[in-house]
Amino acid sequence: MARRVLPGFGLSLGYTLAYLGLIVLLPLAALAVKASGLGLGGLWDTLTSAQVLAALRLSFGAALLSAVINAVVGLLVAWVLVRYTFPGRRLFDALVDLPFALPTAVAGIALTTLYAPKGWLGAWLVPLGVKIAFTPLGVLVAMIFVGFPFVVRTVQPVLESLDRDIEEAATMLGASRLQTFTRVLFPLLLPALLTGFALALARAVGEYGSVIFIAGNIPLKSEILPLVIVKQLEQHKYSDAAAVGVIMLALSFLLLLAISLLQRWTQRWTER
């Protein structure tokens, strides 16, 4: 094996693995052990109950949709913030991070106040037949809110580091504006965009605090998975709660893994 340029590989790897194990794997292992108390039959019964299935659909469906919306809008916002100068740009830039800073319960209460039938927006929307608060649509709105900063903040630095020369070269070589974007810029942004997408998705799947206020929480209709876990805990059914937690983790992990693979693939594709 060739000598590495930087010394201390063994030490830093050991440190990394120990830290990951302690902070991430240990709690997850405890969760899995708790869930295993159910046995395979019990696990299957819990996970295939109508409530869990409905909540799975809502949690992952709304989270995926919110991440897609955040990817599109986030890319636009990042583009505008990097490529244009306009009065108040720094202010808008700072505003992007606000959903991070706000305690999620506060966000949930604020959104519910806006969209409730008597709220500022709700008072206009509900007569038009658009009900957001206390419906699955409300879940989506809350998830979009908490996941918004991720895509902007991952795409922004990449966009800033892009050389204008590339675009100029593309134009000189006869590419149209659309072609410059789709064939030259977009592939370069895609890995960062996917990272932001994955982060927004993961955040939305696990979100409880803000969603719970606006969702309405009607069983089989607007119940998210974390609420199903809380319901199990209230019945002092720890193993069932852990089982739902494990399935959530497993699905999230698969999704994140798929995104990471997709990212690797696009990177290779761009380099070619």
């Binding site: 039938p117 709220g119 608060a133 206390f134 929480n217 009607i218 809380v230």
Partner: peptide, 21 residues
Amino acid sequence: NVPVLDTGARGATTTFAQRGV
């Protein structure tokens, strides 16, 4: 006839009293 199921009693009171639901 229940349009919203809050998780706790205070939450339900807020929905009824502050949100006007």
